[in-house]
């Protein structure tokens, strides 16, 4: 599903964010990326949906070499990838329903699809009853659920999560992780960057540790350290 072959990424200021990284992630896997801040976890994620372009090496996502992808095809790559972030990135002027529906509308899905898919996904994340609330009326955990719903409403093959629990308390984080686990069980590949030790240690999934741009550990059913 995701293959990195000797990928190096250097930023303009000279920072080496990723050095000669090679990783193979198969369909349906759940992978934690761990490491200190600035170790290159976010770059890893951003390379996968082509927010960044690698300097060297090849990246294959869903069988396509995305280094060769022309810019007008990038949106179609991203339709196969859902993204969630530490800061949720919800639109404050839109309701919960509208936030999720927006993801379908802007890729041209017909209204009938929007009307059936959005309530279904909101029920899945347990927010069916808050569909007409605005984001600032929700707790942090609820807002992150909305962002998960938005990322997953288009049934992507891959879900990328960059510190999704970074702004949440431990109890709420557990709820979000259960949700991601359920999504993973539907066959979606999940790649999650985190430095939440508790989560990594309890989930016992594959762990890839990055240290100053280099992959130092790749362990099935791993722990944080």
């Amino acid at each position: 599903m995701i293959t990195l072959q000797n990928v190096t990424k250097t930023y303009k200021n000279g920072t080496v964010a990723l050095r000669d990284a090679s990783v193979e992630i198969t369909k349906g896997e759940f992978v934690f990326l761990v490491g200190t801040s600035g170790s290159g976890k976010s770059t890893f994620i951003r390379l996968l949906n082509k927010e960044e372009t690698p300097e060297k090496g090849h990246i294959y996502v869903a069988g396509k070499d995305i280094g060769q992808l022309s810019s007008w095809k990038v949106p179609f790559l991203r339709r196969n990838i859902g993204c969630i972030f530490q800061d949720f990135k919800l639109l404050p002027s839109k309701t919960v329903f509208e936030n999720v529906a927006f993801a379908l509308e802007v890729i041209g899905r017909p209204r009938s699809v929007v009307q059936t898919q959005v309530p279904a996904i909101l029920d899945l994340v347990g927010l069916g009853h808050k569909a007409s609330n605005f984001p600032d009326e929700l707790s942090g955990g609820e807002q992150q659920r909305v962002s998960v719903a938005r990322a997953f409403v288009n049934r992507p093959l891959i879900l990328l999560a960059d510190e999704p629990t970074g702004n949440l308390d431990p109890a709420t984080s557990v709820g979000i992780m259960r949700l991601l686990d359920r999504i993973n069980k539907t066959g979606t590949t999940v790649v999650m960057a985190t430095h939440d030790r508790g989560i990594v240690d309890t989930m016992r999934r594959r762990v890839i540790e990055i240290d100053r741009g280099t992959i130092v550990r790749d362990q099935a059913r791993g722990v944080y350290e």
């Binding site: 949906n49 949106p75 339709r79 927006f102 993801a103 890729i107 288009n154």
Partner: peptide
């Protein structure tokens, strides 16, 4: 958000 969810340019 539009870019993120794959709206075309």
């Amino acid at each position: 958000v539009m870019k993120l969810v794959g709206a075309t340019n």
